[in-house]
């Protein structure tokens, strides 16, 4: 008999500024103390496949919580209508995102089965946000899946996203696993090389894997760039990485 019982449901958590926001929690049942993982959804939004990712983490023995970063733009609306409202607003503010992710971390730490260690993983825009989280909040391991806009020039900065995440590297406080597609244009192989150079320069712990045949979004089972072999190998690296850094709390 497999040991994969879980509870999974939409919940409400306190996010940035004390706002109540929607989140999806998938957590193992009956497996003792477990580490937590904050899942940051991709740019299309808090969709079906993002919830499936949370359940995948729960099967593997992690309590996974995904805050809907678009919730406050259209409370009570369908996920894709909320994404449309966020698009109109110019996208999520970095500071607001940090508050929402801190709320997710706090919630995971408050769970009765919490072991204490927390990982973060994000896809697409969530990969960029993951890097910012890893440089700004107290987490134990971070997985950046093809986060675009980590390496940007000063003229690409906006009021919503005022900092180039690569410039935060000196403040990075946990190991980073980076998973990238060789066919991606942002992050391009050149962006990935620049980020790696910066991590080395500051003596940070990191592990990067790039898949030559994969493009942007290769983990996304519901989207056209899903690349089976790269995704399968990427998941193996995620399990090994979290197994090493989130165990033994």
């Amino acid at each position: 008999m497999t040991d994969d019982a879980m509870r999974a449901s939409t919940i409400s958590i306190k996010g940035s500024g004390g706002d109540e926001i929607e989140a999806y929690l998938a957590a193992p049942v009956g497996r003792g103390k477990v580490s937590g993982v904050v899942v940051i959804h991709h740019m299309p939004g808090y969709d079906r496949e993002t919830k499936e990712i949370c359940r995948t983490f729960a099967v593997r023995g992690y309590a996974a919580l995904c805050p809907n970063l678009f919730h406050r733009y259209a409370p009570g609306a369908k996920w894709n209508d909320a994404a449309a409202a966020a698009r109109e607003a110019g996208g999520v503010l970095d500071d607001q995102m940090l508050g929402d992710v801190q709320g997710a971390i706090d919630h995971l730490r408050s769970l009765p089965d919490a072991a204490g260690k927390i990982g973060v993983i994000g896809y697409c825009s969530g990969g960029r946000q993951t890097y910012i989280v890893a440089c700004s909040l107290g987490v134990d391991a971070a997985v950046d899946c093809y986060g675009g806009g980590v390496v940007v020039s000063q003229d690409q900065l906006t009021p919503e996203r005022p900092v180039a995440p690569i410039d935060l590297t000196p403040k990075l406080s946990c190991p980073v696993l980076g998973l990238f597609g060789g066919q991606d244009r942002n992050p391009s192989p050149d962006h990935v090389a620049k980020l790696e150079e910066e991590l080395q320069r500051h003596g940070k712990s990191y592990e990067f894997h790039s898949y030559p045949d994969a493009g942007h979004g290769f983990f996304s089972v519901d989207y056209p760039n899903y690349h089976r072999d790269s995704a399968r190998d990427g998941w193996k690296h995620i399990w090994n990485f979290y197994g090493e850094h989130l165990a033994g709390a």
Partner: peptide, 8 residues
């Protein structure tokens, strides 16, 4: 990439 490019 995520462009965040929007005009209303």
């Amino acid at each position: 990439m995520c462009t965040y490019l929007t005009q209303t």
